[in-house]
Amino acid sequence: MTTMMWLLVAVFAAVLVGGGLLARRREVRIREAHSAALECRDQELSQVREESTQRAESSNHQLTLVEQTAKAREQALSGYLAKALDYDLRSRHSILNACHSEQLDGVLLSNVVFLRKNRAVGGDLYRRQIDHVVVTSEKVLLLENKGWKGLVFDGVPPGTIHPDLGAVVGPLPSKDTFAVHIGGQDRSIRIAEEAPIDQAAKQARDLKNIAAESGVDAGFVEICVLYSHPQVRLHALSRQVSRGWHGRVIDLPQLDQVLRAGSGERRVDVEQLTGLLEPLAGDIAGFGSYESTWPSRLAPRVQVS
């Protein structure tokens, strides 16, 4: 073999070796680049998972705060309403329990407050507050609650029960409607400046008016004075008339009978009237078929002895 041929073989071998080295280097670089890309992708995925976890934890934390805030507000609202209804809370529970006991379908609205214009005094505004309104398809029952403890004479002169009581109380107002309270915390004797049945009649008039002005037919509105204290001894003219309104004066044992009595003819649109009065009420509680439609904002219904 000539020198030239050996030289060509050597050059060819060198080219092969160099090409192999370049190929291996290229393969190593490709593998390194691929590994770097995989590592970068893993880092990005890890970062995305971490950020997602952080966002989820932040969302859960915010959701927990929202739930805690909502619960705190609900408790505060319940406490506020209970405090606002403090005087009428016992009667509210008693009325609601009686409605359930009589298996009625309707709504109880408590502490209904609204403003009216007094046309007789230059259109000045006055505030009207109604203790309780029971709305059923049969009738609307407006209840003026009195939590008086002791002896109560409503429409019945104390002297007719015992002459000494008449002497102690003294002269009564010169009208058919009046109320005398003997007892209470200070065991005093007081004659109400305005008979409760007169208060209820005014409330019923304004209730009918605001309903009519909104195009809502309140139907038959019955007024009732409820003496709700368990230690009241009531002497009352059970049926009374005030300002053209016929009403009843009762204590708790007579409540079921009043709720049970129907109005007879006209029907009441419970949902329409309740929708009108709901924004004006401190609390609203459905009973019977309306219990789930209008759940109370206060604590669950309790039994009152």
Rank of each mutant, 00 (worst) to 15 (best):
G155Q: 00
E102P: 01
Q75W: 12
T160K: 07
K71F: 10
V134S: 05
D176Y: 08
G170E: 04
I130K: 04
E67T: 15
K146D: 06
D131I: 11
L115V: 11
Q75G: 07
L141G: 00
N118Q: 07
I130R: 05
A120P: 05
R90L: 15
V156Q: 00
A76M: 11
L85V: 06
Q185N: 06
H100I: 15
E102C: 10
D124C: 12
S110Q: 04
P171F: 08
K146S: 03
R128T: 15
L165R: 01
L172V: 10
H181N: 02
V140T: 13
I161A: 08
E67G: 13
D131G: 11
D88N: 12
T136H: 02
A167G: 09
D154F: 01
I189Y: 03
R92G: 03
G79C: 10
Q129A: 12
G122R: 09
G159L: 00
L142C: 01
D186Q: 13
A98M: 09
I189H: 01
R128F: 14
A98N: 03
L172W: 06
E102M: 01
H132Q: 14
A82D: 04
I189K: 05
I161R: 04
G170L: 04
E144K: 07
D164L: 06
A72V: 11
G170F: 01
S174V: 15
D131E: 13
L96S: 07
G170S: 09
L172Q: 10
K71H: 12
I95L: 07
P157A: 04
F114A: 05
V133Q: 08
G166W: 00
N111G: 12
S94H: 04
G122Q: 13
P173G: 11
L115G: 08
A167R: 09
R119A: 10
G150T: 06
C99T: 09
R73S: 14
C99P: 03
E67K: 15
V140E: 04
Y87K: 13
S78Q: 15
H162G: 05
E74R: 15
A179I: 04
F153G: 00
G79K: 11
H132I: 11
T177G: 09
A72Y: 04
L143D: 00
A76E: 12
H93P: 00
L151N: 02
D164Q: 09
G123Q: 07
A72S: 09
L77S: 15
V168L: 09
V135C: 08
N145R: 06
D186F: 11
L151S: 08
A72K: 08
H93M: 15
K117R: 14
V107S: 00
S174R: 14
G123N: 03
L89D: 00
Q75H: 13
S94F: 02
L85H: 03
G155A: 04
P173N: 11
G79Q: 09
V134H: 03
E144G: 10
H93R: 11
G123D: 10
P163Y: 06
F178R: 01
I189E: 07
V107D: 03
